[in-house]
Design a protein around this nucleic acid. Sequence first.
DNA 1: TATTGTTATACTCTATAACTATA
DNA 2: TATAGTTATAGAGTATAACAATA
Lengths: 155, 155
Amino acid sequence: MKAQTTSRAEPAAGEISAGFERLWALMRWLSPPGLSLNAGATLGTLQRSGPRRLTALAASEGVTQPAMTQLVGRLAEAGLVARSADPDDGRVVYVEITQEGRDMVARRRAARAERLSMLLARLSPDQQDALAAALPAIDALASLWRDDQLAPPAA
Amino acid sequence: MKAQTTSRAEPAAGEISAGFERLWALMRWLSPPGLSLNAGATLGTLQRSGPRRLTALAASEGVTQPAMTQLVGRLAEAGLVARSADPDDGRVVYVEITQEGRDMVARRRAARAERLSMLLARLSPDQQDALAAALPAIDALASLWRDDQLAPPAA
DNA sequence: TATTGTTATACTCTATAACTATA
DNA sequence: TATAGTTATAGAGTATAACAATA
C-alpha cells in the first residue's frame, strides 16, 4: 500500500496481471496439440538462445530440475532436441534444438498465427496497433524475468 | 499465405502469439500457489460474469465438461464457489462464486500485482505506457475468443 | 563437501468413454 | 432421442526426496 515507490507502475500492475490471466485460456487454445505449453516454450527458448545447460533451462522456464530432465527426455525422444556433454565438466549437460525441432517450432508458430489472425482481424485498427506497440514491452518483461531466474537479484 | 485478406493483422499475428508464449513462464511465476492457473482463471471469470452454467464455464475456460465438473468440485470443497440448481430445468447446474472465493481472488490479485510491479518498475516509462495502452485490446481479444467458444461462429 | 543431473514416488489435473437423469 | 452433468479410467506432467557422479 505504500504509495509512489514505483511511479505509475504500481496501480497498473493489478490490471496488467489480470489481463494476462484472461489470456490464459486463449493461449492454450492457440497452441496446437502434440506439445504441452511448457514443451513449446522450452523449444522456443532453445531456438532463440542456442544451446543451454539443463539447469539454466529449468530456471528460465520456471520448472524444477527434475521436471526439466524429464521434459528434455521427452523432447529428445521425439528428436526435437539433442543433449551434449561439456568437455570440461562431466556433470554438465547441454541441450540444443535440432533441425526437426526448428521445423516443429515453425509449424506451431504458423498454426498459432493463423488462429490468432482471425481474432485480430476483428479488433479495431487502434487495438491492433496497441497490441503491436506493446510487443517490445512484453518481450522486455519476459526477458527481465528470465534473467532474474538465472541470476536472482536481491530478493 | 494468401495476402491482404486481413489488413495488417496477419503479419503481426506470429509475433504477437510468440510474445504471448514468452510470457507463459512469467504468468506461472506470478500466480501464487494453492490454485492452479485454470482454477484461478475460472474463479476470475465467475467474479466478473456472475453465476454461469457448468457447460458455459467449461467452454469459456477451454476445458472439457468433465474437467470442469471436477474443477468446480474442488473449488466447492474449498468453499470458493457454490452450485445451485435451475428451477426450470433439473439438468442444469449453476456455479457461483462465494464471498470466500472473492476474498481469494483479491488476495491472489494483490500477490500477483506486487510481484509484477517490481518487474514493471524496471521497464522504461514508454514501455510501461505501451503495456497499459494494450490492456483494452488484450481484454477485447480474450472476450472475443470466449464469446466464440460459447457460440461458435462459422468454422 | 558442493554441484549437476537423474531416478523414485506420489500427487494434481486433464481427456475420453461410459453412464445417469432430465427434457 | 437429445442434452446436462457425473463417474470411471488412464495418461501426461509436475514436485519433493533420495540418489549417483563429477568437481
